[in-house]
């Protein structure tokens, strides 16, 4: 029962909302969030790298990214920017959002930055569309590949 309750809150309206406070002014956060030389460093987390990261940050512009997991698997990603309001708001979605019927479920992501002087509040709303026909591909291992990469990193960190 408790499992279902928490699960259904996770898919409530099919959105995920996350928020964080960063110890940096809004301009700096925007810069590190929208410039490839920065994004390629942090995107994915520790152990992930980006052999390709090109960002054309304007409405209709493309963000091309190849995400390399810690175990060396490459995931090519292509996003299009829907809304760009420097330094407050950035909205993007996969270039094939709503068109592709294979692969993992896709979503639109909206990030809003809030100026708190030396700090910045970061809020992300990820909106997922129907997952029709996609559960199978999830089971086929896309999720597992990324998760396995992370487990390796966790082991490494523990070993240090």
């Amino acid at each position: 029962m408790s499992k279902i309750t928490s699960d259904s809150s996770a898919v409530d309206e099919a959105t995920i909302i996350m928020s964080r406070m960063f110890d940096a002014p809004i301009d700096k956060v925007w810069e590190c969030f929208t410039k490839p030389e920065h994004v390629s460093v942090w995107f994915g987390g520790v152990g992930f790298s980006a052999p390709v990261c090109e960002m054309d940050v304007r409405v209709g512009g493309i963000w091309k990214h190849v995400m390399r997991t810690p175990d060396g698997t490459d995931f090519p990603l292509e996003y299009v920017y829907l809304e760009v309001k420097k330094p407050m708001r950035l909205v993007w979605q996969p270039a094939n959002h709503g068109k592709s019927t294979s692969g993992p479920p896709t979503n639109r992501t909206a990030v809003t930055l809030e100026d708190h002087g030396d700090r910045t509040k970061w809020t992300m709303v990820a909106t997922f569309t129907s997952m029709e026909g996609r559960e199978a591909s999830i089971r086929m291992g896309y999720t597992n590949t990324i998760a396995q990469g992370c487990e390796k990193i966790n082991e490494l960190v523990k070993a240090l």
Partner: peptide, 28 residues
């Protein structure tokens, strides 16, 4: 479960990314 697993994975992905992002901000 397939759906919730995917959503959880997505959340973990951004949690990791934002940890990394926060650490990176400090070096800048």
């Amino acid at each position: 479960q397939a759906v919730t697993e995917w959503l959880e994975e997505y959340r973990r992905f951004w949690d990791r990314s934002l940890d990394s992002f926060a650490a990176y901000l400090k070096t800048m």
